[in-house]
Write a protein that binds this DNA or RNA. Structure first.
Lengths: 140, 140
DNA sequence: CGCATGTGGTTGCGGATGCAACTAATCCAT
DNA sequence: ATGGATTAGTTGCATCCGCAACCACATGCG
């Protein structure tokens, strides 16, 4: 009675969800994938360099380079060379990004609500805790 | 330090998991992504055409074309033109695929066990049920 | 019949992402 | 200090995937 495994379900949910989220962000000039994660991290922690950011977002540093490039082109992020270490950049949100933050948050909230629209708040909590455990197991 | 959202957790888990699964399948000439899903579906239901298969696996029909192509090249799948409808192919597992089935199943089982290695069997059940609900909500 | 419509499958294109190789700057041990 | 590791970031290449345009065959309606 279980047509799909846990792995397959996550794969399906994720693919559908990512597409919907990308669709919601597109009108704001923000591409799909991790871009919104990067922007959120920069808003929460201005001045970070790309390496730290890569660690926050848990993607590849090459992906970081490309997403930051796109966010910069879209006018959400500014990069300045770090005078302490001229290999690295310090990343800051632009005015546009700061003004956009509440909108971004509302889009992400709506997305997470949609993901869990079939679940009671107790179930959401349970799912969250279980996924945390799963992730902790993989990370090790 | 804010915790990850449900959406982000699924994204993280899925990315790590897909990579590991692809790694486990590579020695057998099976690429990552949905390829194993297609092979499993063909083994379970020989003679299907690609359209039905696309529905089973829930991916795009273009992706089906490419994955079947790869499975055929790797010697796991044979295609014969359907004499009833010459537009479509009937898909069959090769001897190699049939011999491989138990191995494939063990790899997928190991993957799902690894995903849930931090969870009790009761928790696995709960996670499974919750993901089903989430998926049902998205599908609608 | 014959053309319009529908359907199975393929291909072109673009986006996302990881790995590996590379550049430039920094750090460290001698 | 100086050469070898290390580190921040970039780029090339490969894979995966969806959408849309397209082709060939099938079906249905007049």
């Amino acid at each position: 009675m279980r047509p799909y495994t846990v792995g397959k379900l996550m794969s399906l949910i994720n693919r559908i969800g990512q597409r919907e989220l990308a669709e919601a962000l597109k009108p704001h000039g923000i591409g799909g994938g991790g871009q919104h994660s990067y922007l959120k991290a920069i808003l929460a922690n201005p001045g970070m360099n790309q390496d730290k950011l890569t660690g926050e977002v848990k993607l590849d540093k090459a992906t970081t380079t490309r997403c930051i490039q796109q966010l910069e082109d879209a006018g959400y992020v500014m990069r300045t060379v770090d005078t302490e270490d001229r290999r690295s950049y310090r990343l800051y949100p632009t005015e546009r990004a700061i003004a956009f933050e509440p909108v971004l948050q509302s889009i992400l909230d709506a997305y997470n609500r949609r993901l869990t629209s079939n679940l009671s708040s107790r179930e959401v909590e349970a799912l969250h805790a279980l996924l945390h455990k799963v992730y902790a197991g993989l990370d090790a």
